[in-house]
Design a protein around this nucleic acid. Structure first.
Lengths: 169, 169
DNA sequence: AATGAAACGTACATGAG
DNA sequence: CTCATGTACGTTTCATT
């Protein structure tokens, strides 16, 4: 195959076409779908009739779209949003962890999954290997959880205490 | 007031009573409430009858409890859980930011709130001042968002790319 | 606080155009 | 996708314990 003329030769700092939005979209998700999703994120208990009104569509049409979005996994499910502090989880933190022994199989996420104080677990490209979001009742409780994390997954931890959450859409 | 006898004198490493759960609990949330919350987190569209069955309670009893939890703000609301990748947000990152000019009023969270790529914003006790969770379509898009964050809030940024999310309860 | 029943409203499913 | 129909069900209210 012939090489396409380089749109910016190596070493130049000339950027390529305008950014726009990356649109990999395996299958089509149109504007109506996006509207329905927005509404359902705003109110997970919205009825089909609610949605139909917002979308200026019939209930049936909305129904099939929502079912399709659910089937495709675009909509994963529905959940109640709970105030952690109301449940006594007064302290939240990001906990970045690094395996101590790189020669051993790294199954930290699996080992930690059962711990109820761990809300999420991401593997990351950065100084550490994983970042956890942890919610506990008190500093004492955090200490205990950190000990358990270290012992369970054989990792170092670096914690960043959350002082205030401004928004979490 | 007389000083209470020190339960562990300064300098000792003797811990105090067992950890248990910190229970600040302004008002009572009993086990049934917790069950209802758990069920509603698992399925935000669960009906009162569903919940009544799980709790072995009457529909009316469940109704008043759920309404109370909502009114108190324990249950903040209901939302659909959406797969970010299905919506073309293929890249997520933690972005830690630090104000460049400490003498200026720090209103970074307010300034950034309008940006749709920013999913959450926490102020933290750590090396940086805030940690954002950002979702974008591509590395190019991330670059653009980072520029906008820096320009809008007059901050430095340090990004940690999320490679994979194992769980996010 | 919880129960049970009664009444109401409507959300949802289905099939035709 | 719209429209129309019928059933089922979720919710609300209230009297009672």
């Amino acid at each position: 195959m012939a090489e396409t003329p380089r749109p910016g030769s190596p070493g130049t700092l000339v950027p390529r076409p305008p950014v726009g939005r990356a649109e990999p979209a395996k299958i089509a998700i149109d504007e109506i779908d996006r509207l329905l999703i927005r509404e359902l994120v705003a109110d997970g208990r919205a009825t089909l009739s609610n949605l139909a009104e917002k979308a200026s569509l019939s209930v049936s049409a909305v129904q099939s779209r929502v079912r399709r979005l659910e089937a495709r996994g675009v909509i994963r499910g529905y959940t109640a949003t709970v105030d952690p502090e109301a449940l006594g989880q007064m302290l939240s933190a990001f906990v970045a962890i690094t395996p101590l022994d790189p020669s051993q199989p790294d199954d930290a996420p699996a080992r930690l999954q059962h711990m109820p104080s761990i809300e999420s677990c991401h593997s990351v490209a950065g100084e550490e290997s994983y970042v956890l979001m942890v919610r506990v009742g008190s500093p004492r409780h955090l200490e205990q959880v950190l000990h358990e994390i270290r012992a369970t997954a054989n990792v170092n931890t670096r914690s960043t205490i959350i002082l205030q959450t401004f928004y979490d859409k």
